[in-house]
Amino acid sequence: MTITTLSSREFQQNANQAQKAARSGPVFITNRGKPTQVLLSIEEYQRITGQRRSIVAALSMPGLSDIEVEFPRSREVPRPADFS
């Protein structure tokens, strides 16, 4: 794991560099020499918090209502469920 530290100015000027660095480890962003934020990859954040995205959270993301999806109709006749 590589820890990267950037000033807030460096972060603003090189956001792409910070995103790339976050793939290898946390990126500490400082303001006047003091850490104020940490940039993590989503995988690392989920590992630390133990969170997994639920289908409800995924479907409630902003902007998804603008996407049109068409599902092909199945030609198969539905079968009753077997609960035995």
Rank of each mutant, 00 (worst) to 15 (best):
L40H: 04
E44A: 15
Q46M: 15
R73Q: 13
E68K: 14
T5S: 05
P26M: 01
I67R: 08
F11I: 02
R73C: 04
Y45R: 12
R47L: 07
I29L: 02
S60Q: 15
E44V: 09
N16F: 11
E70R: 14
A15P: 07
S74A: 09
T30L: 12
F28E: 03
T2R: 06
R23E: 02
Q46T: 14
S8I: 12
R75G: 14
A22L: 01
F28W: 04
T4G: 00
L59E: 14
P26C: 01
I67G: 09
F11V: 01
E76V: 05
I48N: 12
T4C: 01
S7P: 06
F83W: 06
R53F: 14
T30R: 13
Q12W: 08
T4A: 00
P72A: 11
I67K: 10
Q13V: 02
S24W: 02
S24P: 02
Q37K: 12
Q46Y: 15
P78Q: 03
D82M: 13
T30Q: 15
S74L: 09
N16L: 09
L39C: 05
M61G: 10
F28N: 03
A21C: 07
R23P: 00
L39V: 02
L59D: 12
I42H: 15
R75A: 05
M1A: 13
Q12D: 04
S65R: 11
I29S: 06
F28D: 00
S84L: 08
L64A: 10
V69F: 09
V38H: 02
E43Y: 07
R79M: 10
F71Y: 12
G25F: 02
L40R: 04
E43L: 15
I29P: 07
V38R: 00
S65K: 12
S54H: 09
T5P: 01
E76H: 02
P26Q: 01
T5I: 03
I42G: 13
E70Q: 11
V27G: 00
T49E: 08
S74C: 07
I55C: 11
V77S: 14
F83L: 14
G25T: 08
Q13C: 05
R32D: 14
Q19L: 08
